[in-house]
Each structure stands twice: as structure tokens, then as C-alpha cells.
């Protein structure tokens, strides 16, 4: 564990907590893309299925449980919570996110480290995470009013993967040259997608 990765995990955790706070405190999910939240839930389920088979560390297991349960809780709130679900702008959140799932799955079948169920699920989750923010970015560009908490949520989500890229650079120089090309490429695409958001976020 290095500082970049720990900072990345904390920033990621913080982004989820900010979103949970927004939804819980304001009982509203206006401006939040439910499709992005559903994609993140799929990302975590596909990536953390080794939760019960491989024990890496208490930290690793606890964080996996936190990410899976928080993303499921947010999707549940946006679908089932009587007050929150009313504030979901369904007609605005129109990105065809099924296309993203299908594309990530096809990519994972072709580009993976080993053609095994575990590795294909892992690659699928990495590719899907890289593009999962798209419905949310489209929603932000449509909606005039980006409320602070939603803006902060997206900001921290973009920052977390940038920290992970620093983590991969650090590990490259300290731990030898593992083939991380899947993580590298996806991480760069993921952080790149936020570039225009960061541009407007800081200009506003």
C-alpha cells in the first residue's frame, strides 16, 4: 500500500459518502444519473466477487463491502425510496448505458490477461468503470444547475483515478514491471473523460 493508492481509495470513498449525504440530507437525487450508479454497482460486483474467495487484507475486504453496499444503497434509494425516487429526472437521464455494458464485455472477452472467468470479469469491470461516468457527465451538461454536492461527487470521483495512475507509476518503479496495460489504458481514458468536467468545474 502506498500513499497514492491510499489517497485514491479515500477520495473514492469520500465521493460515495458525499453522494449518500446529498441524497440522505436533501432526500433528493436531482442531477444524479441513476444509470451511472447502476453501472458502478455492476463494476463493484464484477470486480469484488473474489471477496469471499481471496482474503488480501482486512482493509481490502472492508472497503469492498463498503463500496458494494453503498452503491447498492444509492441505486435502491433512487429506485425504491418513496421521496427520493420522485426527484429522479428520468427523461433527462437518457444515456443508453446498456451499450457501455455490452462494449465493455466484448472488450473484456478480447483483451484480458488470461481467458478465465475471474480475469474476464476483472477486465470487464475495469473497462466499464472507465466509461461509467458518461451518463452522469451528459446529465450535468444538460442540466443548467449543477448543485454543489453533485459537482463535488464527480470531482472526487475523477480525482480518485488520477491518484491511482500515480500509484501505478510508483509501483512500476518500485515493484518491477508487471503488465498493467489494462489498468493503464482504462485509467487514462477514465481520467481523460473528466478533463472537460474539471475544466468547467474550475472555471465556474
Amino acid at each position: 500500500m502506498n500513499a497514492f493508492r491510499f489517497l485514491g481509495d479515500m477520495t473514492h470513498l469520500f465521493s460515495v459518502l458525499v453522494l449518500l449525504l446529498k441524497i440522505y440530507a436533501t432526500k433528493s437525487c436531482s442531477g444524479v444519473s441513476r444509470k451511472t450508479q447502476e453501472l458502478y454497482m455492476v463494476v463493484f460486483l464484477a470486480r469484488y466477487m473474489d471477496l469471499f474467495t481471496d482474503y488480501i487484507s482486512l482493509y481490502n475486504s472492508v472497503m469492498k463491502v463498503v463500496f458494494i453496499t453503498s452503491s447498492a444503497a444509492i441505486v435502491w434509494c433512487m429506485r425504491r425510496h418513496p421521496q427520493v425516487r420522485r426527484t429522479y429526472d428520468k427523461e433527462q437521464d437518457t444515456f443508453r448505458h446498456v451499450v457501455l455494458v455490452a462494449a465493455a464485455f466484448v472488450l473484456a472477452l478480447i483483451f484480458n490477461e488470461r481467458f478465465t472467468f475471474r480475469e474476464i470479469c476483472w477486465a470487464f469491470s475495469i473497462y466499464l468503470e472507465a466509461v461509467a461516468i458518461l451518463p452522469q457527465l451528459v446529465l450535468l451538461q444538460r442540466g443548467r444547475n449543477v448543485d454543489n454536492l453533485t459537482g463535488q461527487y464527480v470531482f472526487f470521483l475523477g480525482a480518485y483515478r488520477a491518484f491511482y495512475i500515480l500509484n501505478w507509476i510508483y509501483r512500476y518503479f518500485t515493484e518491477g514491471h508487471h503488465s498493467r496495460w489494462i489498468s493503464w489504458l482504462s485509467g487514462l481514458v477514465q481520467t481523460g473523460l473528466y478533463a472537460d468536467f474539471f475544466y468547467y468545474y474550475f472555471l465556474r
Binding site: 487484507s57 469492498k64 463500496f67 490477461e113 488470461r114 476483472w122 518491477g176 508487471h178 503488465s179
Partner: peptide
């Protein structure tokens, strides 16, 4: 050698 990246990250 292209070793598979360890899956110890979140």
C-alpha cells in the same frame, strides 16, 4: 516478462 498484475487493489 509480462507477469499478470497483482489483484490487490480496489
Amino acid at each position: 516478462e509480462c507477469l499478470a498484475a497483482p489483484k490487490d487493489e480496489l
